[in-house]
Design a binder for these strands. Structure first.
Length: 276
DNA sequence: CGTTATGTTCCTAG
DNA sequence: ACTAGGAACATAAC
């Protein structure tokens, strides 16, 4: 789940439930997700008040008055939730932040790739983690300037959080499909027109996903995402979703690019020729 | 039982 | 210094 749109959705949720009231306790069910000493975390949080929520790429920040922040990264399967009683703890809750009014905010993560840490400031964290500009904040010029000097395949570059932060495996496939660019094109072979459509696709896919609160099933019919396998199991019996939305009879192709499962349309996104 | 998985990071080798 | 590929992490779901 947690690519940029999901994390933005989590942030908005947290903004509604956690602001302006003291954290009364920190309950750790599994310290594996802590990238900070448990007692240090407790000392830093208990009695404190979150004054703002922020997001950079796939990272969510709960900010305190002094500019320091709790940083949530959701790994591959992280989520947030809220509950009030022990008997309602969501399954796979790893850490719970108890608030003074009795609400408890859960950091949920079945696979435990997510991490909770502290930082002195967002700027510090961005520097430490080598995060580039947020994918919703970067400009076309900024993005194309970096990409056009790279000989690497475009897909792994878009996944690289130091170039622009927030794009994940599914969204990159969607963006490349919408922009009609093959995932194995070398970045330095893209034309100006292709950089423009790539940029436009990034912005529109992200905004669409955020508007739908990252509920993929509600995405427009012309989105590639409906062709992915998990959607198949979500809507059994229908085969149509395995085909390109623009070429009804063309099956969506799957291969591994940069070690990641990659879906694309062989007609919309022509294979790069060796000579380029 | 085998396969696959939304992310990050580290290691190796060219 | 850059790039490609692979493994590791931990676990659920199919």
């Amino acid at each position: 789940m947690p690519e940029l749109p999901e994390v933005e959705t989590y942030r908005r949720f947290l903004d509604e439930v956690i602001l302006h009231q003291p954290i009364s306790a920190v309950e750790v069910f599994d310290r594996h997700v802590l990238a900070v000493d448990e007692d240090a975390l407790r000392r830093r949080l208990v009695g404190q008040i979150v004054v703002a929520t922020r997001r950079l790429g796939k990272n969510c920040f709960l900010e305190f008055a002094d500019g320091s922040a709790l940083v949530l990264h959701f790994g591959m399967t992280g989520d947030v939730g809220a509950y009030r009683h022990d008997y309602d703890v969501p399954r796979f809750t790893r850490v719970a932040f108890h608030l003074a009014d009795g609400l408890r905010v859960a950091f949920i993560d079945p696979r435990k790739f997510g991490r909770i840490r502290l930082t002195d400031s967002l700027e510090q964290y961005q520097k430490d983690k080598k995060l580039g500009p947020d994918a919703l904040g970067i400009s076309l010029e900024e993005l194309s300037q970096v990409l056009r000097k790279k000989k690497t395949l475009i897909k792994p570059l878009l996944l690289d959080q130091s170039i622009t932060a927030g794009l994940g495996n599914w969204i990159v496939d969607e963006v490349l499909y919408q922009a009609k660019i093959h995932p194995e094109r070398r970045a330095n072979t893209l034309t100006d027109a292709e950089f423009s459509s790539l940029y436009a696709a990034i912005q529109s896919v992200l905004k669409t996903a955020i508007t739908q609160e990252a509920t993929y099933r509600q995405f427009p019919a012309n989105f590639l995402i409906h062709a992915r396998e998990w959607d198949e199991s979500a809507t059994p019996g229908t085969d149509q979703h395995r085909f390109c939305p623009r070429h009804q009879k063309e099956e969506i192709a799957k291969k591994y690019v940069g070690g990641r499962a990659t879906y694309y349309c062989q007609i919309c996104q022509p294979e790069p020729s060796e000579s380029i």
